[in-house]
Design a protein around this nucleic acid. Structure first.
Length: 259
DNA sequence: CCAGACGTTGTT
DNA sequence: GTCTGG
DNA sequence: CCAGACGTTGTT
DNA sequence: GTCTGG
């Protein structure tokens, strides 16, 4: 699944790699310990306002902006609903009332260096944290769906009355990846990013096909230190490979996964 | 009809 | 808002 | 996801 | 055990 990840990539690089047209809001500090309810940067496409209502609609603007991790449905009474909606299963994405509309009309990409998994080892008290990233160290983009929630406790002219929030789509993990965990974020490869963001793909059936068409990512896992469990800890040291007690490095290249 | 949920993961 | 359960 | 709290009354 | 906060 995806309950913690790292995103240290700067806005400028996201703009460059993902062909962003418009940067909205302030850049966030890099984080190697992004946790639920944290603000994160996301990339999405918004249809351009057609001011005179006459001409053909302009191409959608691809934006980089901030959203809170944990999707807050529009009908929520308060923000706390979002804390339970950090992930959306790809298998039921187009069915669940909390995600269905967002799946059709509000898909986004979540840029990440990689993500963490905690592996339960039989007989071991503490779970083992792993960090998984692209084999070439390339930027990952998780499939996301976002929502806008109106905070009724704020004035109409308060810019903070609209809260943008996001859920990371998850899918089944197979093979080596599945040995660490049976769920994994849905990773959108470079060639599928435009389709995932497309504002003209609004039919649920199309979205289902799109999800099904995404290939399994080739990720490389390695064991990291336990410090990442504490959300107050941060820094690049969190993703550093941690040697095992026997000195052997607990990392498998290429196919990935523990022995 | 109204009331209440609306989500995922992991663990046993 | 919309679906499910009663 | 993990870590940490989990409660009320009455008060210096 | 279960919920909340981050």
């Amino acid at each position: 699944m995806c309950g913690r990840y790292a995103s240290s990539v700067r806005d400028a690089e996201v703009v460059d790699l993902l062909d962003v047209d418009e940067v909205v809001g302030e850049e966030l500090p890099p984080s190697w310990n992004v946790a639920p309810t944290d603000d994160v940067r996301v990339v999405l496409e918004r249809p351009q306002r057609d001011d005179d209502g006459v001409g053909a609609a302009a191409a959608p603007a691809r934006q980089l902006r901030t959203a809170r991790w944990g999707l807050v449905p529009s009908w929520s009474k308060d923000l706390s609903t979002g804390a339970r909606m950090i992930n959306a299963r790809s298998e039921t994405l187009t069915e669940r009332s909390a995600f269905r509309v967002a799946a059709a009309r509000r898909r986004c990409l979540v840029p990440a260096d990689g993500y963490y998994e905690w592996q339960a080892v039989p007989g071991q008290r503490r779970k083992t944290p792993w960090f998984l990233r692209d084999g070439d160290g390339a930027l990952l983009t998780f499939a996301g769906v976002y929502e806008l929630w109106r905070d009724r406790s704020r004035d109409d002219d308060d810019p903070g009355r609209w809260v943008w929030s996001v859920a990371v789509v998850t899918t089944a993990a197979h093979d080596a990846l599945g040995e660490i965990h049976d769920r994994t974020p849905l990773v959108v490869p470079p060639g599928a990013r435009a389709d995932w963001l497309s504002t003209t793909t609004t039919e649920l059936e199309e979205v289902r096909e799109l999800v099904a068409s995404l290939p399994e990512p080739h990720l490389v896992p390695h064991v990291v230190g336990p410090e990442v469990g504490d959300v107050r800890q941060d820094g690049p040291h969190l993703v550093e490979p941690r040697a095992r007690d026997d000195g052997e490095q607990d990392s498998v290249a290429g196919t990935g996964g523990p022995a």
